[in-house]
C-alpha cells in the first residue's frame, strides 16, 4: 500500500519539475523586441539587455535634465551644466562589472529611491535568455 502512494507522489513531482523546466522558456516570447539599453563594450550578454524606451520613460518619470543620466564626472564630482549625451557609458565606466554596476546604479538606485519602477532582475531584463 505505502510504496504505491510513494511512487504516485514521486511521479507527480517529477512531472511537475519536468513541466517547469521544459515550458518556462516559452514565457514572454510573443513580445516584439523593444529598444534596449546598449553599449558597444558589452561583448556578450549574461542577460539580454534591458528594454528601455527612452522618451516614454522620461515622459512618465518627468525627467527633463539629460545630465541626470548622461552625467559628466570630474574629480569625483558631477559637473553642473554639462552632459555627456552622445558618449557611450563605457568611455568612462570601462567594461565588465564596473560598467554593469554603473547602469544598475543609474536605473535601480533611482527606482529604489523613488519607489517607482522595477528593481528586480527579471523586471528590467524582461526578455529571458
Amino acid at each position: 500500500m505505502k510504496p504505491i502512494r510513494a511512487k504516485t507522489i514521486l511521479g507527480a513531482a517529477l512531472v511537475a519539475v519536468l513541466a517547469l523546466v521544459s515550458l518556462t522558456p516559452a514565457w514572454g516570447r510573443d513580445q516584439a523586441p523593444p529598444p534596449v539599453v546598449s553599449d558597444s563594450a558589452f561583448d556578450h550578454h549574461r542577460r539580454r539587455a534591458a528594454p528601455f524606451a527612452h522618451d516614454e520613460h522620461n515622459d512618465l518619470a518627468a525627467i527633463e535634465d539629460c545630465a541626470l543620466c548622461h552625467h559628466v564626472v570630474e574629480n569625483g564630482r558631477v559637473k553642473e551644466d554639462e552632459d555627456s549625451v552622445g558618449m557611450e557609458c563605457s568611455e568612462c565606466h570601462g567594461s565588465g562589472l564596473p560598467l554593469i554596476a554603473a547602469y544598475h546604479g543609474r536605473c535601480k538606485e533611482c527606482h529604489q529611491e523613488t519607489g517607482l519602477g522595477p528593481i528586480l532582475c527579471a523586471t528590467c531584463h524582461t526578455v529571458p535568455r
Binding site: 517547469l20 518556462t24 514572454g28 532582475c121 529571458p128
Partner: peptide, 10 residues
C-alpha cells in the same frame, strides 16, 4: 530557476 525563466508572478 523560476525567476530566471520569468515565470508568472516573478
Amino acid at each position: 530557476l523560476w525567476a530566471f525563466h520569468h515565470g508568472p508572478g516573478v
